[in-house]
Design a protein around this nucleic acid. Structure first.
Lengths: 176, 176
DNA sequence: GTCCATGCAAAGATTTTGCAAGCGT
DNA sequence: ACGCTTGCAAAATCTTTGCATGGAC
């Protein structure tokens, strides 16, 4: 994918400016990658992607920027039921709240948008006088495919711990 | 609080037996503590509480038991919006699903039981053909008290990052 | 008696911190 | 020019693993 510095960067700059975030090469790049990604990226994946465009970028900068964007409400942090370890995943903040549905067998993630999520929000705000800033709902279980594919005994006896062997999304290469 | 081996232990044994979990002193103790706790405990707090009744118990056993109970669906794992670090919190599995509402200022946690949660579940099951095993919804923001207490400028300008100074719930003493 | 669970030591994975140098405004 | 940001190295935090011993069934 090619980079168009002026066009892409500017779509990313205005939200950052609005939040009074000092613009740096690294922040623009990282926010742009998260915005354009169709997946939920973890810190390591983001770091690896960023390195392709800025070989000097440091992992620490990734963590600091993620924390900043999260604090400002520009991105959301997900755990995805810790299917693949303890790291977090990130996505741009969408206008509509949505739930993440994680298959504990194959690791697939689906998104659910729907009325119960708005109602949940309203009831919490009015019922508790609570001011909601972040909203995370995650559901774990077996997707339609994995239910059909697997023998019922295994489902019942082995329980959700057994993982399908799937290429790990965790920290890729050596620690360096 | 005093220990009544026969009464308390037996309320804890039958669920463990039902799940084919081999009964050990440590597992009974840990599950009992989680069941009787009115708070959401993290691994370290659980470990510290357990040590009071079994000075020899090992932290590793706590982690292994938590994983087991979680896999078996006897307890649920919470993140509580990572208000106080990256550790997890645990609670007995209740029959009714509920959301956890975390104040990002004072760290208080409230629980919401309500119809939108059941509807969410139903819609995900019917709409996706998904078999739900775990359900976690967490909401972060400012509780009624913290909204009232704080000057609006601080709320608006400082953003959600600023934490009230609250005794940490993280790993207590030295690593040993 | 067999197999699983525990304890201990060590390592692994992820994230944070201190500090000097660099960059944005 | 000032102050926030970055990079680097090191540390901190939380969790898992290997292996020998001990306990459950």
């Amino acid at each position: 994918m090619e980079r168009n510095p002026s066009a892409l960067a500017s779509t990313v700059r205005s939200p950052l400016r609005k939040h009074g975030i000092r613009l740096t090469r690294q922040r623009e790049l990282l926010f742009e990658i998260i915005n354009n990604s169709h997946d939920h990226l973890n810190a390591d994946q983001l770091y690896e992607l960023a390195k392709k465009q800025d070989a000097k970028i440091n992992r620490v900068t990734v963590y600091r920027t993620l924390k900043l964007l999260k604090t400002e409400g520009l991105i959301d942090e997900l755990d995805l039921m810790h299917f693949d370890g303890e790291q977090h995943y990130y996505e741009t903040r969408l206008k509509q709240p949505h739930a993440h549905i994680v298959c504990l067998r194959c690791g697939s993630v689906q998104e659910f948008f729907g009325e119960p999520l708005q109602r949940l929000r309203e009831q919490i705000e009015s019922g508790f006088g609570f001011q909601i800033l972040v909203n995370r709902t995650e559901v774990g279980g077996y997707c339609a495919d994995c239910q059909n594919t697997l023998p019922s005994e295994e489902t019942l006896e082995a329980g959700p711990a057994r993982r399908k062997v799937i290429p790990s999304k965790r920290r890729s290469s050596p620690k360096k």
